[in-house]
Amino acid sequence: MSARSFGSLFMVASCAGAALGCYLVSLRVASERAALESVEARIVTTQGDLRLLQTEIGTRGRLSQLERWNAGAFALSAPAATQFVQNSFELAKLTRPVTEPDFHAPIVLASAPAPVARPQLGQPETDDAGRPTAAPAALLHEASLKTETREVPVQVVVAAPRPAAPKSAERPVTAAKPAPLESADKPGLAAAKSLPAKHAPAHVVEAQKPAQKKSVDKPLVASAKPVTKHTQLAKTDPLAPLPDRHSRKDSPTGR
């Protein structure tokens, strides 16, 4: 009974509530719209300000002013036709690596290994101790080119001396054998004898052969003489000419 009598009231209340809700939504929309419009208005105002500032900058940096500075203050001129490069290759040509001398670097003179005194063909190559270093067979290289052409007979001719090689190689091995045995009790002498053969050029060895009989000192001196020149460290001015004469005089080998 009471519920039914309040039914219409509920109806009215819910209607009012719904209407109020709708109104609130629309109010909210309107306020958002107003806020948006104020932002838009601010954007337009800012655009106007930007224009004003851009105009001011443009006026202060006008081309005639820049020209006056360029021509008067900086003395700049337009680039000449030769200052343009056509492609990347021409651009790369303009630069080259800069090499700056490093004054503190140690001076290294060019050096090359002295030519090894080759034992005569048929003689075994020996090391410091006089032992043969390489098998005599290794001295010979066999041509490995094999063709099916008519040059085959030529290959046969080349291959012909091969059986002779081991024969000649075997002989020096036996001949050289006494050398290490001989020097075993006198290592210094053996070293003195063998060293020049290893390090000095062939003609030096030839020249010293007679002297070798007289004394062992000279071959030793010869062996102590460095192959490359004495390395100097820069102490004063590295660009000054090297005191070549002095170094030669002071050198232990003398002339």
């Binding site: 709708c22 629309s26 109010l27 929309v29 309107a30 107003a34 419009e37 838009e40 208005a41 337009v44």
Partner: peptide
Amino acid sequence: LYLAAFGDHAGAREEIGAF
């Protein structure tokens, strides 16, 4: 409601949009 949703209101819209 219609006016709230679609109507013109204070602040003429023609000025707004671009300078």
